[in-house]
Design a protein around this nucleic acid. Structure first.
Lengths: 139, 139
DNA sequence: CCTAGTGTTATAGCTAACTATAACACCATC
DNA sequence: GATGGTGTTATAGTTAGCTATAACACTAGG
């Protein structure tokens, strides 16, 4: 797990997304306890309330159950619920937007989808000279 | 006309993104004026300051020039600048994340490429009343 | 009972984002 | 020079997100 936060989204939602990812990836199985609020808060140097807020979302989604004094636990059927819900959300909202961007940038969705299956090697960019050079275009 | 704005991102950034999309799509060409701050504010029932903040980002990125009393105009070379910058940003940040999600959800390239292929890159003549187009896709 | 681990609530303060309202500065045109 | 269109700045208030600090409520294990 990286310790970095994305500026585009509130921390508590990113926290929620990470747990979701861990459930989908099978890192957290049904019945398993989530890392404790205080632990996560310490580990990521974030306020416990922020962690709680993220976890609370999972409770509201029916993915997680909270037992006072014991911890928070993945519900039965959580993974399945997610596979359905997240798929629909992705296909209905995110993918159309992403696809539009791809075409707008003159990229080929097919090529992108067929690229190597690198899990998290974050630097997939061709990195054409990132200099601040003004493109030599006529004006 | 309802859900104009996405909850995931501040309005001023979405505003900026819409203009960027219009430049990339050729709806706004270099030298063209942007829809006026007051017009956009009225049209979208948003505060003029919010619009200005979005526009100001474009100025900071060197895409747009502001002429007091006259309007804001697309700079020469703007589209080219964008094609480079946005591509890199997309490939380096957004796409890896999206790709991870795709794999996590067990989606196949086929399913993703089939859906409505939404217009080719060469669109028909744009409306003359330069409004801020919504980036693709209705809900 | 005591302790150390859980989740949860209570105060209080900060910043970013957005809002309403108003005024200021500039430019083109009549 | 008055008018009506631009961008810009000033004040001030609301809300959401995050923070620090502390306390409360519960449970398991000694």
């Amino acid at each position: 797990m990286d310790r970095e936060w994305n500026d585009n989204q509130p921390i508590y939602r990113q926290l929620r997304d990470r747990v979701v990812a861990m459930i989908l990836d099978g890192v957290l199985k049904e019945g398993d306890p989530l890392p404790s609020v205080r632990n996560v808060a310490a580990e990521y140097r974030v306020n416990p309330l922020t962690v709680l807020k993220g976890y609370q979302q999972l409770v509201d989604e029916g993915l997680v159950e909270s037992r006072r004094g014991r911890g928070m636990f993945i519900n039965a059927g959580a993974r399945n619920l997610l596979l359905q819900g997240e798929r629909q959300k992705f296909l209905g909202e995110e993918w159309p937007r992403v696809r539009a961007t791809i075409e707008r940038l003159g990229l080929k969705a097919e090529e992108l989808l067929n690229g190597a299956t690198h899990g998290s090697s974050s630097d997939a960019a061709p990195a054409k000279t990132a200099k601040l050079n003004r493109p030599e275009e006529e004006r």
